[in-house]
Design a protein around this nucleic acid. Structure first.
Lengths: 169, 169
DNA sequence: CGGTATAATGTTATGTTATAACATTTACAA
DNA sequence: TTGTAAATGTTATAACATAACATTATACCG
């Protein structure tokens, strides 16, 4: 441990219940546009709609939940369309899949080209945040390398209670 | 880091292709009996069968794969029976579920009462090993606590290439 | 031993998540 | 403008998991 930690960079704040979420969402959409432009991929209608629905909150959403919202106005979109959009969004680093929930969440670090992520999932409010911990990353890399194993991808999903729910309880 | 690492305790060997697996399996079954006796739970026929099928290898198996093996001789066991057996085995720490694969694997540390586990999954041969790394555990615990989050459960699943497949390639 | 409570299993049906295969449309560039 | 690749539509099905209720087995008590 070196000195005091710097919350702004080392310890991103867990999304607060009352924060200005409209801002998160619009910011995310703006970044997504930028990423797609840079990568020469197309953020089509359905892809944008799926991304917007995902960014309605910091709670992961299931594919079929997205689907039913898409079809709320009487649409006839098929499941596969949602999965294709999700695949695109994940390939472009805009969305993550949470294997422990079979659900999807907007990526908090778009454009940063991080294909590995760790997540904190609050079992009370559902809010899920990315955990960017350099020491954790190092420990993981080291432990794996030590065993002669080479990493392709990794899943780290931690379920528990977030600071806000702890305070409320 | 303190001194040189001790492979026998700190760095368990990744299961080798040609190892005496019959031994792994019988050992596992023996331990399972002991655990159930100690916990006054019953390792019934179907539960033992499922556990044996899981221990046929170090490659995780899906519930329906287990089911079809159970029914290979013309049986009529229903999916729910397999899931109930799996639930029992997991509750008793005899089996783990791999969320990234929707598959199940025998626990390498029965009786050690470890409810958290990390896994190394070889994408080439499928072999999966538990990773017991104290530094990793510490880093994880620390990173999470630092953010005011309290842990209930965690999933760490690392996909890559195992030492033996790397050597072969 | 017989009764009774609990645990385990059987039976049937259905819910939830995800993909295959092939047809059609759209966007873009030569 | 037309050829091509990307995207979407359409239909069907695969893969994973649980609900609800009936029946059977086990163990424990009097």
């Amino acid at each position: 441990m070196t000195a005091r930690r710097k919350p702004s960079t080392e310890t991103p704040v867990f999304p607060k219940p009352g924060h200005n979420h409209a801002r998160c969402a619009s910011e995310a959409l703006r970044k997504a546009e930028a990423v797609c432009t840079a990568r020469k991929t197309r953020l089509t209608d359905i892809r944008r709609q799926v991304l917007e629905l995902i960014w309605q909150s910091h709670v992961p959403v299931g594919a079929y939940e997205i689907l039913s919202q898409l079809n709320a106005g009487g649409g006839r979109t098929a499941p596969i369309a949602v999965y294709r959009a999700l695949e695109f969004l994940m390939d472009n680093g805009l969305v993550h899949r949470l294997a422990s929930l079979n659900a999807y969440i907007g990526c908090a670090h778009m454009g940063d080209d991080h294909h590995a992520a760790q997540f904190l999932i609050c079992r009370t409010c559902g809010t899920t945040a990315e955990l960017e911990s350099a020491p954790l990353k190092r420990a993981l890399t080291h432990a794996v390398a030590e065993r002669g194993f080479s990493i392709d991808s990794q899943i780290v999903e931690i379920s528990g209670v977030c600071p806000h729910c702890r305070a409320t309880a």
